[in-house]
């Protein structure tokens, strides 16, 4: 088992495995998203106070969860790669970053469109929203740093250091913004009153969250395959792979 894992840590060995896993995760993502959307739009009843607009949370909450999970996973892979000097880990963190940034953007966008009809404002400097915005900046910094360094090995290690510093900072940033928000209480809107959640809403959200997981894994695997091919372009097997693809 252990030696099998070590074998898979080689990009060349992981490439076909990722290719085999890809359709399964894509299929699961599509099926779960369809089920989740069905629950969100046809099963879940209209909310008494928020009307139809609350249906946004079925995409907003899973996207917000994913944006944070992916950052932690990215930092985890990056740190693992830094400690163990495995090439695949760095590629994995590169493959996750754009998807994480995309989910962060979706969380911000849908949050704004949910906030307008619910609280009467697109944007409030609330701790959660502000931290999410800073998280987007952290993703963009990570992607920009990796893109600016030519040598892939150096880019991986520099990115890993940045991701680790960032992951230490995210909770501190959240806490500091929350602290700041209590000081300026008059200016902000209280966003703490969450609507009480019915079981069917929870089901819809769970399905959508699972779909987001599967989607992230599928896209990360596809991007990982692309990165592996790019980095190993001079290796014989990669040339063969490209000529047959």
């Amino acid at each position: 088992m252990n030696s099998e894992l070590f074998r898979l840590a080689a990009p060349q060995a992981f490439f076909p495995v990722a290719g085999k896993m890809l359709p399964w995760f894509s299929f699961l993502a599509g099926a779960l998203a369809l089920a989740g959307l069905y629950v969100a739009f046809f099963v879940a009843p209209t909310d008494a106070t928020q009307g139809e607009a609350y249906r946004i949370i079925f995409i907003h909450v899973p996207a917000a969860w994913m944006s944070m999970f992916i950052y932690v996973m990215m930092a985890g892979w990056a740190g693992f790669g830094l400690a163990m000097n495995t090439r695949l880990s760095g590629m994995m963190s590169s493959a996750l970053a754009p998807t994480g940034a995309m989910f962060t953007f979706i969380a911000l966008w849908t949050g704004a469109l949910w906030g307008k009809p619910t609280w009467g404002t697109y944007w409030a400097w609330d701790a959660r929203m502000t931290s999410e915005l800073v998280l987007l900046f952290l993703y963009l910094g990570f992607i920009a740093l990796k893109g600016a360094i030519q040598d892939p090995a150096r880019a991986d290690r520099a990115g890993a250091i940045l991701a680790l510093v960032g992951v230490v900072n995210v909770p501190i940033i959240y806490f500091s913004v929350q602290w700041w928000n209590t000081l300026h209480q008059g200016a902000s809107v209280s966003l703490t009153r969450a609507p009480s959640m019915a079981a069917v809403m929870l089901l819809g959200m769970l399905l959508m969250a699972l779909a987001a997981w599967m989607y992230s894994i599928a896209v990360a695997l596809a991007r990982l395959r692309r990165i592996i091919l790019e980095r190993e372009r001079d290796a014989e097997w990669a040339k063969l792979q490209r000529s047959t693809a």
């Binding site: 607009a53 946004i56 469109l113 949910w114 307008k116 009809p117």
Partner: peptide
């Protein structure tokens, strides 16, 4: 509401 939901 349709604007907000579909916008999201």
């Amino acid at each position: 509401y349709a604007f907000f939901v579909w916008g999201s």
